[in-house]
């Protein structure tokens, strides 16, 4: 069973790499959804002796939210914003994949040094740290506002897997609160992206760093 859980961990890492090289926005959304679903199923495989019904219920809620609701919201935001259908990275895809690999090397070194309780599934800590880093990579090197939401979701996936390494099963209230937060965040960001694209005709974050008055040179007049 643990070999199977390890395979899932490897799958999560491969999806990090895939996210780093995927150019299509809709594929990115689907990959993030798939990663969330896989991460949500993971406690069912790694857990043992815990109340099984509760774990299954959690998994069901997570799978519905991350696998169906979020992709739907994000796809809707993508369609409504009328943005181009690719992610427009600031660095090349090979550089992204190399950064991801470097992150994985760094996180396996860090994972071996962190004073954590022994987990039975190998690589769970490095995988979670690498996933968090991939989220940061998506946020910093992609120009669209929608990829920033995706990066945020990937970071959440990473933190979730990290939590698995610590507790195997998290307290119900904490988990539900996090899910609610993420749901509200994605919901609000979806609306925000829509409004940004309506106001500015684009969702390019590089353009959003300057005030529109300032750009037109009317400042101080």
């Amino acid at each position: 069973m643990h070999t199977f859980a390890e395979l899932i961990i490897v799958f999560v890492i491969l999806m990090d790499l895939a996210l780093a090289v995927t150019g299509s926005l809709s594929t990115c959304i689907k990959l993030v959804a798939l990663q969330g679903v896989v991460a949500g199923v993971l406690p069912l495989l790694a857990g043992h002796g815990a109340p099984y019904v509760r774990a299954a219920l959690f998994a069901a809620v997570i799978v519905t939210l991350k696998g169906a609701v979020f992709p739907w919201l994000l796809m809707r935001a993508r369609d409504k914003s009328g943005a181009r259908k690719d992610v427009e990275p600031l660095i090349s895809y090979p550089a992204s994949i190399m950064l991801c690999l470097g992150a994985f090397i760094a996180s396996s070194w860090m994972g071996s040094r962190l004073p954590l309780p022994e987990t039975e599934v190998a690589w769970i800590v490095p995988a979670s740290l690498a996933t968090v880093f991939t989220g940061f990579l998506l946020i910093t090197t992609r120009t669209k506002a929608i990829t920033q939401v995706l990066g945020y979701l990937v970071i959440e996936n990473g933190i979730y897997i990290f939590g698995l390494a610590l507790f195997v099963e998290q307290p119900m209230m904490v988990e539900l609160a996090i899910l609610l937060d993420v749901f509200v965040a994605v919901f609000v960001m979806g609306i925000a992206i829509f409004h940004i694209s309506r106001e500015f005709d684009h969702i390019d974050t590089a353009e959003l760093s300057e005030l529109s008055d300032w750009r037109r040179g009317e400042y101080g007049k």
């Binding site: 490897v10 890492i13 090979p94 994949i97 991801c100 690999l101 090397i105 190998a122 490095p126």
Partner: peptide, 22 residues
């Protein structure tokens, strides 16, 4: 094509890292 081969490189590198981290 280099992207595809870099993917192969990433697979090999990941395998090596996994094996080292065992």
């Amino acid at each position: 094509v280099p992207y595809m081969l870099i993917t192969a490189f990433a697979f090999s590198a990941l395998a090596l890292i996994f094996q080292m981290g065992r």
